[in-house]
Simulated scan of single mutants.
Amino acid sequence: MANSGYFDENSDVSAILFDLDNTLIQTRKGDTKACNKLVELLQNEYGLPKDMAVESGSTFLRAFRARPDDESYALHEWPAHLWRNCLPKNYKHIAKSVSTEWLRLRFRYLALTNDVIHLLETLREDYLLGLITNGPSRAQWQKIERLGLRKYFDCVLVSGDLPWEKPDQHIFHEACKLLNVEPRNCIMVGDKLETDIKGGKEAELAATVWIPLQKDEEISDLPDITIDNVTELPEVLPNSPKLKRSTNMSDDC
């Protein structure tokens, strides 16, 4: 449930910075769903015993989360390499087809929900929107492009392209610079206390909004506002006049 009342009537918030994974898209849940479907596929289509299929899927998911990209491989070849390492010896030849199905299912489950699309489209009528995401450049841009996210944002920053990552205040200030706004006019929305919230506080943004990944996660006093889901964000935003998108924004956005 959203907690409101942080902003007063004189608040002048003109830009909202969003985290990507587990904030706008449910990366952990989506990847788990995709992997569970693949476990079924391994059993029903390829004949793996259930215990082998489950072990292969679990091992792959752990490896992929630990290292979502390796630039010594082509981007589409990296998950195939991981599957090849995770499948039993007699099934390694199916790694490429399994990896193709993994990517299809993954982006199906990571797609923005209609509620989040409506949220972003509505917010863009009154606010500048920025996206700041940590992670390897190719892997993060693959998600951004495959999910069609660019059109919702005035500025997109991927830490893999930059000398800093969240919680370094420089990445937040870079977003503000590209949007041509002051940090005091921005809020940061994200799921991680140690990156999104801590970084937003150290960058002296107007406020930080935390979305705990787990419903039973211990509430922290670090964020200014806590909500259960990103779609609750309008409930806590100030009602002050907003800054419309301007031709003065940096072309680098």
Rank of each mutant, 00 (worst) to 15 (best):
I132M: 12
L110C: 06
L157Q: 08
R65N: 10
T23N: 10
E174I: 00
L123Q: 06
E182R: 13
E232F: 03
E9K: 15
A206G: 14
R138A: 14
G200H: 05
D126L: 00
E77G: 10
N229Y: 02
K198I: 02
P49A: 12
D69Y: 10
D31A: 13
M249S: 07
W83P: 06
M1L: 13
K33A: 12
K151G: 15
L179E: 10
E71L: 06
K242W: 02
Q214E: 13
D224R: 02
N180A: 14
T59N: 13
L103Q: 14
Y6H: 14
L128P: 01
D228I: 01
E125G: 12
K177V: 00
W141Y: 15
T208L: 08
G148Y: 04
Q43V: 09
S72I: 08
R146V: 11
I171S: 08
K242I: 00
I187R: 08
V209G: 03
K215A: 14
D168S: 13
N239Q: 15
I197S: 13
H118Q: 12
K192R: 15
F172D: 11
D8K: 01
P212V: 03
P167F: 04
S72H: 14
N114I: 00
I25V: 15
P223T: 05
I94N: 01
I16W: 04
C155R: 04
I219G: 02
C176T: 02
E194R: 14
V189N: 10
R65H: 12
V189S: 09
E9Q: 14
V54Q: 15
K50M: 02
E232I: 02
A203Q: 09
T27M: 06
P212D: 07
L48E: 05
S56Y: 00
L237N: 05
I187E: 08
R84Q: 14
D224Q: 04
Y6E: 03
I211W: 04
D196K: 10
D115P: 00
C186K: 02
S137L: 02
E204R: 07
P49N: 11
R108D: 11
K92H: 02
G148P: 09
K143I: 01
P163L: 02
G5Q: 08
V189G: 10
N180Y: 00
A34F: 03
V230A: 08
E218F: 00
G200C: 05
E121S: 14
I211A: 07
L131M: 11
V236L: 07
L233N: 09
M249V: 10
L110Y: 07
M188T: 10
L213Y: 09
L103P: 00
E77M: 12
A66V: 00
K96G: 03
E182S: 14
Y152G: 11
I144D: 13
R28D: 15
